[in-house]
Design a protein around this nucleic acid. Structure first.
Length: 479
RNA sequence: GGCGCGUUCAUCUAGCGGCUAGGAUACCGCCCUCUCAAGGCGGGUACACGGGUUCGAUUCCCGUACGCGCUACCA
């Protein structure tokens, strides 16, 4: 039975790299009919953020990533929040002290800092100097009894090669002399990631550890911990990093990294999931659009790439447009509606649907339905007009013809795409001119822009009275 | 500095000893056309470098260079 876990630290938002890790866990679990576990790694009290867990849960739900066990779902291996399991970690730290694989350290942060600085100055690798590694049991007991602050450190064996197999990177090995005597239990009684992670993965019976490559370097410590406990380690799969355009680790400073940012900017969860799934993994390379079900069916950890992948916003934009085009106006309506409300744009469902229908082919995000189509809701102020388009089409002759055409439009009995087109083309033909000489000025007068849906359908949606008023207004006020 | 991981078009990638090195995004051109899109067609750009192994290397091995990650009582 495959059991995987997504183990985020609740820092307030969900990084898109975490989203991909969560997605791969989910896909792998589903693909193998296994169990997907959510575990909250909140052992750093200094980084506690109010509401972060709730936000995480909401974001995962938005993305369509479900869990079988977790803080909400429950399960046989709970609790699924590390801050509620501290007793377990303390017991296990003591167990390691008892069997000699860990030791108590009384070094102060100040001393560690001093040691580190002198090591750096001397050009040697900064590592704990193992000052407390061989304290006598009597000394340790009395200092602990006296209430002296202390941590528990892993007693890393000397002169040993630590090897493990990674599903993505194959065999990796580290010389134990390059591995630090890692702190396992902090002086505040909370465990570090390393201890909590191993203890939890063991008791939660996790079979595959899927996480970012930034963890590869600490995996030997984890392997050593499994050995110290006498436990069977899980299989490891270290995912390639998501990168900024300059190929550094994807970070806040260089743009949006939070899943919530993309949601708020009008990206669909299906598109973001599809896009992020293909960053570091690819089932065939001839198809690009995959539903969650298709991803599940095809996902294969062994096919995950080794090299990092640049998060390429342009491709996401394209993909989001693809998904928008696949939806119906009715499906889009509830997604666009709240955005219109944010702009105080008021209109009936029917009206908004017809606008969506016209705009669907030319948007990439949900916000484009609002920003590129504002003239459907408010009269244009012409500040968004394309100057080139305006100077080319808003000529004295054009205005003259518009003035002459206006009564004909006004007198139309039925106002729809065909009747409007007939009237416009009739006028153009009667005056020996191309219809474009009318179409462009009308577009400018009515929308204030040089781009948008086909003119006749646009006018039909807008309604006769509104169009007439706008043309009149433009004729008198637009220079 | 040490350790680790990586390196195919600008970007995401296919390739698992023999290919005119394929697809997608972006870009450019043409078609369609009332604009912008969408759609169709076409185009340019890549195997980091140097050694091996082999009849033959993008593919296997070793170096070099470059990039990235880790190097906390953070995860």
């Amino acid at each position: 039975m495959v059991r995987v876990r997504f183990a985020p630290s609740p820092t307030g938002y969900v990084h898109v790299g975490s989203l991909r890790t969560a997605l791969y866990c989910y896909l792998f679990a589903r693909r193998h009919s296994g169990v997907n576990i959510l575990r909250i790694e909140d052992t750093d009290r200094t980084r506690y953020v109010e509401g972060a867990v709730e936000n995480l849960l909401r974001t995962m739900e938005w993305a369509g990533i479900g869990f079988d066990e977790g803080p909400i779902e429950g399960g046989a291996c709970g609790p699924y929040v590390q801050s509620e399991r501290t007793e377990l970690y303390r017991e296990h730290a003591n167990q390691l002290i008892a069997n000699g694989h860990a030791y108590v350290c009384f070094c102060t942060p100040e001393r560690l800092d001093t040691v580190r600085k002198s090591q750096q100055a001397a050009g040697i690798p900064p590592m704990y100097d193992r000052h407390c590694r061989n304290l006598s049991k009597e000394e340790v007991d009395s200092r602990v009894a006296a209430g002296e602050p202390h941590v528990v450190r892993l007693r890393v064996p000397i002169g040993e090669m630590v090897r493990f197999h990674d599903m993505i990177r194959d065999d990796v090995e580290f010389d134990s002399r390059t591995i630090d005597d890692q702190v396992l239990l902090k002086s505040d009684g909370f465990p570090t990631y390393h201890l909590a992670n191993i203890v939890d993965d063991h008791y939660m019976q996790v079979t595959h550890v899927i996480r970012g490559e930034e963890w590869l370097s600490s995996t030997p410590k984890h392997v050593l911990l499994y050995q110290a406990f006498g436990w069977e380690p899980p299989k490891f799969a270290h995912l390639p990093l998501l990168l900024n355009a300059d190929r550094s680790k994807l970070s806040k400073r260089q743009g949006d990294v939070a899943v919530e940012d993309y949601r708020d900017k009008g990206y669909l969860p299906q598109a973001l999931i599809n896009f992020v799934a293909l960053l570091g993994w690819n089932p065939s390379a001839t198809e690009e659009i995959f539903s969650m079900d298709e991803l599940i069916r095809q996902f294969d950890l062994e096919r995950v790439n080794k090299a990092g992948a640049v998060f390429n916003r342009e491709k996401l934009d394209w993909m989001n447009g693809e998904y928008i085009r696949k939806m119906t106006p009715e499906e889009l309506l509830p997604l666009v509606r709240p955005l219109l409300e944010k702009r105080n744009f008021v209109a009936s469902d029917e009206y908004v649907c017809s606008v969506i229908k016209l705009m669907q082919e030319r948007v990439r995000t949900l916000w484009d339905f609002v920003d590129f189509a504002s003239y459907f809701y408010i009269t244009p102020d012409f500040t968004t007009a394309d100057e080139k388009y305006k100077s080319k089409h808003w000529t004295p002759q054009a205005k003259e013809h518009l003035g002459a055409l206006l009564p004909k439009l006004e007198s139309l009995e039925t106002w729809n795409h065909d009747s409007i087109e007939a009237a416009v083309r009739e006028y153009a033909e009667a005056n020996g001119m191309g219809a474009g000489k009318l179409i462009h000025p009308i577009r400018l007068a009515v929308t204030g822009r040089g781009m948008g849906p086909g003119l006749f359908e646009l006018l039909a949606v807008l309604g006769k009275q509104e169009c007439v008023t706008r043309i009149q207004h433009a004729l008198t006020s637009l220079a």
